[in-house]
Every structure is written in structure tokens, then in C-alpha cells.
């Protein structure tokens, strides 16, 4: 295999073989290569170092590098699999794979649990859920009295926190999501089905026979 590997691995630190990435994710080799086209554009948007920093991540998502947001920060932290403060190509593909329509349901449940477990303790605590609710209210301009927020939290924890210890563990989250499947809607990106048609230029850079 020629230029995809030799050139890409020099210019893109942490670059991984698309064939291996395809075998580890819900993507085909062609889709991984198409994602590389997207990755190249994002990772060179502010600093052309072959890695995605938080500013580039937010610029790609919101077209606005200044927007600070609790959820965007948390998603960046989860995409930064190796905890280096930047996202490399392997991190990007493996994380996006969870959002593929064909990705295992369990992977989506795991990712959503980590997303809402803001401090990574292994539990979704009431204070974290309140913090996220307040962030959502600020972002949307919706106004709810603190008492209403507490009522929503009471009701949510009454349903989700089966052992009533004030925090939601992984198994409680799995049960809660089964009862409320719409909660996983944010975990599927239909765009990922069409990634090769969205970034067709990947065929000009591919050296893999599958295409």
C-alpha cells in the first residue's frame, strides 16, 4: 500500500492503518478513508499539525471556535481517547464509530453513560444531572424555576436510581435507557451511512484494493 500509509503516517501523528481501523469499527475501509478527508480538513483548520485540538473540534461542530459549552467539552474529552488534549485519527474514527447506525447498542449505552458521568466516577450523580440541566437551560434560553428543576430531578431519580442511593450506576442506566429508548437518539448519526458520498475525494487518495 502506497501513499495513504507512508504520507499520512508522516503528516498525521497517531495515524492508524485504515484496514485495521475498519476491522475495529462499524466502518468499511472506504468509509475510514472518507473520514480521513474530513479529518484532514478539521485537523488543519487552525493549526496544521495533523491533530484535532479543542478549538478545531468546536469550529468543525459549531462553525464558531469561541463557543464554550459543557457538553461540547465533555464530547471532546471522550473523543480524546488517549487523554493527550488532542484527538488523533484513530481516536476520531473509533469515537465516531459509536455513532454509526450499525454500531452495537451496548456501545451507545456505554458512551452515553460516560458522557453524562461528567467527573468519571462511574456514577451519574444528581449534582451532575442538575449541572447539565442548567447548561441546557442557559443554552436554549428556556427558563425554569429551581423548584421545577428539582421536581424533574426527583422524578428522574425516582425512575432511574432503582436502589435510591442518589446516583445512577451503569446497570441502572442500562435499564433506564431500555425503558426510554429515545434517550439514545443523540447517539446515532445518519450522516455516517453516506460518508463516502459526502467526501468522494477519498478515492483519489486511496491505495486500498477494496474500493
Amino acid at each position: 500500500m502506497g501513499c495513504f500509509h507512508s504520507t499520512a503516517s508522516k503528516q498525521f501523528p497517531g495515524h492508524e492503518d485504515p484496514v485495521i481501523l475498519a476491522s475495529q469499527t462499524a466502518f468499511s475501509v472506504s468509509e475510514v478513508e472518507a473520514l480521513f478527508e474530513l479529518y484532514k480538513s478539521i485537523s488543519s483548520s487552525v493549526i496544521d499539525d495533523g491533530l484535532i485540538n479543542k478549538e478545531e473540534f468546536q469550529l468543525a461542530l459549531f462553525k464558531n471556535r469561541k463557543k464554550e459549552n459543557l457538553f461540547a467539552n465533555r464530547i471532546f474529552e471522550l473523543f480524546d481517547v488517549k487523554k493527550k488534549g488532542v484527538i488523533d485519527f484513530g481516536d476520531f474514527v473509533k469515537s465516531l464509530s459509536v455513532f454509526h447506525p450499525n454500531a452495537p447498542h451496548e456501545d451507545k449505552i456505554d458512551f452515553s453513560f460516560k458522557l453524562y458521568d461528567l467527573d468519571g466516577t462511574g456514577f451519574i450523580e444528581r449534582q451532575e444531572v442538575k449541572q447539565m440541566l442548567i447548561a441546557l437551560l442557559c443554552e436554549s434560553g428556556m427558563k425554569l424555576a429551581d423548584e421545577t428543576v428539582e421536581i424533574i430531578l426527583d422524578k428522574t431519580f425516582l425512575e432511574a436510581d432503582v436502589n435510591q442511593d442518589g446516583k445512577i450506576d451503569k446497570s441502572e442506566w442500562q435499564n433506564f435507557v431500555r425503558q426510554n429508548p429515545s434517550l439514545l437518539k443523540i447517539m446515532t448519526l445518519p450522516y455516517l451511512r453516506d460518508i463516502t458520498t459526502t467526501f468522494p475525494s477519498f478515492v483519489f487518495h486511496s491505495e486500498v484494493d477494496e474500493i
Binding site: 461542530l61 440541566l133 430531578l153 425516582l158 425512575e159 448519526l189
Partner: peptide
């Protein structure tokens, strides 16, 4: 307080409305 109110949305349904949890921005040129 009436935590059993059947009309009440749960906290995660509300949180899921955040536009910042929508990654489709990556694919919009």
C-alpha cells in the same frame, strides 16, 4: 412537589435537546 406527575419530561430527555450534543455539524459544509 409531585414527582409522579405523568406529564413531566425526564431530565435526560431535556438534556438530549442540547444542540451541542448533535455531532451532525461535522458533516455540514
Amino acid at each position: 412537589k409531585n414527582p409522579d406527575s405523568p406529564t413531566l419530561i425526564n431530565a435526560f430527555q431535556l438534556i438530549g435537546m442540547s444542540s451541542c450534543l448533535d455531532l451532525s455539524g461535522f458533516f455540514e459544509k
